[in-house]
Design a protein around this nucleic acid. Structure first.
Lengths: 140, 140
DNA sequence: CCTGGATATTTGAGATTGTCAAGTAACTCG
DNA sequence: CGAGTTACTTGACAATCTCAAATATCCAGG
């Protein structure tokens, strides 16, 4: 049973809710600028770092592997991603960004304003404090 | 063109990404516990405060009004929400939580651990600092 | 070696969320 | 009253998601 929360905690939770909403808006907007959906942008972002087996994508997205099939299908149809065999295990298919996919991923990162705009109003010291508080919140 | 971000800012952006991910997991989990989807839980939460015209729900969810029709349909089919006429404007339908809907909304709030768990590790003073930083970030 | 169980992926069915275009009803203002 | 706007719904369609079933491959014990 939840104990009633104090006004301060409620306000912080509310603010976090606003940050979450804003983050999502930004992310969807940036993805849409490149004709991607949010899910596609997330996958492309992951694959721009290194090839990942389908299973790994499902784990990263916290969804069923069968769902990843469709998302990668659509990215592959646009030439942003390709499936490669895994030399170590013939069951596995590695999803990998193509050169074109890496370009889009980079452009996407650049057009994601969330980092610049809201954090721009904080001084470096304040960002340090924020970092420490967020780390503690996340239990790191 | 994005200027390269410093390591601190990158880390903070990353942490915010983690907070967003965690918030969503929690929210979906809490909603699923009550056999609701995220969208349904959000609408029910809004309606537990006061009746809202369909148009208002669309604005709050930042989606097309036609989308709200379906979400409210499904909540109404389960007896959690009802549509009432607006006495001031016969075009408008006010979506309102039923008694049963308010109960579920309360239970849902109670099972949303996000507020308690991560913030529990911060002292009241730290929460105050966090609140101020988040407010500034959001430009409030 | 070879068989049984586990793992990786895909396919297909179905629900939900979202968009857009079109249609109906009701309001508003000149 | 009539024209234009607003509120809501409907229908068609795309994307995301889940679950169950099918296929292919791996692995470990006998």
């Amino acid at each position: 049973m939840a104990t009633r929360m104090d006004a301060l905690t409620l306000e912080v939770v509310d603010l976090i809710g606003s940050v979450v909403a804003r983050y999502h808006e930004e992310y969807e907007r940036a993805a849409a600028e490149h004709a991607l959906t949010g899910a596609q942008a997330r996958v492309l972002g992951l694959l721009s770092l290194e090839p990942v087996p389908m299973r790994g994508l499902a784990r990263a997205l916290k969804c069923e592997p069968s769902n990843v099939t469709g998302i990668v299908d659509r990215l592959e149809a646009r030439g942003l991603v390709e499936r490669r065999p895994d030399p170590a295990d013939r069951r596995v298919k590695l999803a990998a960004a193509t050169a074109s996919g890496r370009e889009v991923a980079t452009a996407l990162r650049d057009s994601l304003d969330f980092a610049r705009e809201p954090l721009g109003s904080l001084s470096p010291e304040e960002r340090g404090v924020l970092r420490d508080l967020l780390r503690r919140m996340l239990g790191q």
